[in-house]
Design a protein around this nucleic acid. Structure first.
Lengths: 190, 190
DNA sequence: GATATTATCTAGCGTTGCTAGATAAATAAT
DNA sequence: ATTATTTATCTAGCAACGCTAGATAATATC
């Protein structure tokens, strides 16, 4: 069975190379530059091989997004762990969120902006998505009764900050002030 | 000069037909269905004619977005005017924002999600964009000293609500509760 | 060694945004 | 009134896209 196992490993490794290439190209040149031909070139196989791994281009973007969610929830959890007091944790997580969005712009775009079939708050929600939500909920929980409600609102505000800043519609310089305002509002919720 | 004037009018009218067609197709079938060929078909001219009106496809999307901003700020201003008390106005505007985003999804997408060169908070900001910001600022102003800061935050939260709800990532049923939470937080700002 | 299966490739379809070069129509100059 | 010039428009096509059918090579099975 060892040959079959090696083949399986090779396949998995090739699939990972596709995802990695997509991620690198997206980060450097934007998602428009991530074409099937370009990826095929990068992994040194013909284009149809990609379709033996992924149903279509969107599935490749989704695979990158999943990777992103893993790192994202790790970053948020870390931020919460490093901060001591509860209010500090809230602010640390909010800052970590915005830092992630800014320094992994293409990744964040795949996760939250580009059309995708990945869903939240549904039975078929991917565990990676759940983990990210849980990381936010954890730092919000001490301040409220309806955790889900406040977490959704916290998340939405952060997403709005990230998006409007990315598209140059709010002032980058006021970032900390906005975070402070948000954290203050949440920590004073009944 | 009357012939030249008529020509100018005809041209302007044709340009408007392009924008209108783009808007209708986007609303019915999504922005991917808005192709140059399709628009050319719709206005019954050849494709190159479109490029005598707009530099490229993105410019057509931007033209639709500008229309959207006009209607958007009108909707927000109306909501504020119809509401009496200040807190009520805040909530009315928040609700109007989300209703607009939901019932004009393609328009909202052109305004805030699709890549565009339209900018906020810059010297070259379009007046249509300024008006929308001003409409939000007007209802926020009574509750805070730093109006710009709180308006940005208000806006970001609403944008996050709209986007996360559109992509199925927060619960549509909790919409009113989230608005109430946001309005409560803003109206208690020092 | 013949047969079936799997892995991969070449070649191409239909569509996209966009443009060069040709043609027809309107205007200006003689 | 005829010619020249500018303006408006079209036909045709390029390069690139996502994706796939059908052919070929490599591997496994009998």
């Amino acid at each position: 069975m060892s040959i079959a196992e090696r083949k399986g490993r090779d396949r998995a490794e090739r699939e990972q190379r596709i995802v990695a290439a997509a991620r690198v190209i997206a980060a450097r040149e934007g998602w428009d530059a991530v074409t099937i031909r370009r990826l095929a070139d990068e992994i040194e196989y013909s284009q149809p091989v990609l379709y033996s791994h992924f149903a279509n281009r969107a599935a490749i973007v989704a695979a990158v997004a999943i990777e992103g969610f893993r790192e994202f929830s790790a970053a948020l959890t870390d931020a919460a762990a490093c901060a001591g007091e509860q209010t500090i944790a809230l602010e640390a997580v909010a800052s970590a969120y915005l830092t992630f969005a800014r320094s992994h712009a293409a990744l964040y775009e795949a996760m939250f902006v580009l059309p995708t079939d990945l869903r939240f708050a549904k039975s078929d929600t991917q565990p990676e998505l759940r983990a990210a939500f849980a990381a936010l909920a954890a730092v919000v929980a001490p301040f409220c009764a309806d955790v889900e409600l406040v977490t959704e609102t916290f998340w939405a505000a952060l997403h709005g900050f990230a998006e409007l800043e990315r598209s140059g519609r709010i002032r980058p310089g006021a970032r900390d002030a906005r975070v402070a305002l948000l954290v203050g509002a949440i920590s004073q919720t009944a």
